[in-house]
Amino acid sequence: MSEVAPAVALDAVHKTYQRGGQPVHALRDVSLRLPRGSYTAVVGPRGCGASTLLAVLGCLAAPTSGRVVVDGTDVTQLDPTARTDFRAETIGVVFPGTTVLPRRSAVENAALPLLFQGVPGRQRRRRATTALERAGLPASHATRPA
């Protein structure tokens, strides 16, 4: 029986920043597998590397070393432009405190990035509705103004 590939895989990921000329090791030898359809919470005290881990997972930051595979694509092999394109087409990132457009529904807010990708209106709405349903937001709530 073949094993299903994970949605996300990290192998021996390190991320080091320079602060005041000193190295800051935000991630050290992180390896994990996130199965398709799973929900994962990343929590920890300030400075533990959780935000850095999410930035690497979301293709917002490249690891210093190691390998990151998202949906079968080794994103560590992509140049910055290709990584940005991959993120725009494949990954949704919402940070705490992110503001939504007022007086717009969750569907309208979720569909906005698709507008910039040139996705037609009906398809934007359908894809946004599907994504919100997968995230657990009932359709009755998705169309209410924020």
Rank of each mutant, 00 (worst) to 15 (best):
M1P: 12
S2V: 12
S2A: 15
S2I: 15
S2W: 14
E3W: 11
V4P: 15
A5G: 12
A7I: 05
A7Y: 04
L10I: 05
D11M: 08
A12N: 13
A12M: 01
T16M: 13
G20M: 15
G21H: 06
P23H: 07
P23N: 09
P23F: 06
H25P: 11
A26N: 08
A26M: 14
R28M: 14
R28Q: 15
D29A: 10
D29P: 12
D29R: 10
D29F: 14
L32P: 10
R33H: 08
R33V: 11
R33G: 09
P35R: 14
G37N: 12
Y39D: 12
A41D: 10
V42K: 04
V42S: 07
V42P: 03
V43F: 02
P45G: 09
R46Y: 06
R46H: 14
C48A: 15
C48P: 04
G49K: 12
A50F: 06
T52D: 13
T52K: 11
T52L: 14
L53W: 11
L53E: 06
A55M: 11
V56T: 14
V56C: 11
V56I: 15
L57E: 15
C59E: 02
L60S: 01
A61T: 09
A61R: 11
P63Y: 08
P63W: 00
T64W: 02
T64E: 01
T64N: 02
T64Q: 04
S65A: 14
V68G: 00
V68A: 00
V68H: 01
V69M: 07
V69D: 12
T73M: 03
T73K: 02
T73I: 05
D74Y: 07
V75T: 08
V75Q: 00
V75N: 01
V75L: 04
V75I: 07
Q77G: 06
Q77A: 12
L78I: 09
L78H: 11
D79Q: 12
P80N: 13
T81P: 05
A82L: 07
T84I: 07
T84R: 01
F86I: 00
R87S: 05
R87V: 06
A88F: 01
A88R: 09
E89D: 13
G92T: 05
V93N: 04
F95G: 00
P96M: 05
P96I: 02
G97P: 10
G97Q: 01
T99L: 11
V100T: 05
L101I: 02
L101K: 00
P102S: 10
R103N: 11
R103F: 09
R104A: 07
S105W: 00
S105I: 01
A106E: 05
E108L: 04
N109P: 10
N109A: 10
A110T: 09
A110M: 13
A111C: 02
L112V: 00
P113K: 07
L115E: 12
Q117P: 03
Q117K: 13
Q117R: 14
V119L: 06
V119Q: 07
P120C: 01
P120R: 03
P120S: 09
R122Q: 09
Q123W: 05
Q123C: 01
R124V: 00
R124W: 05
R125K: 10
R126C: 06
R126G: 06
A131M: 14
L132H: 15
E133I: 07
E133R: 10
R134K: 12
A135R: 02
A135H: 10
L137I: 15
A139K: 13
S140E: 15
S140Y: 03
T143C: 03
T143L: 04
R144M: 04
R144H: 01
A146G: 05
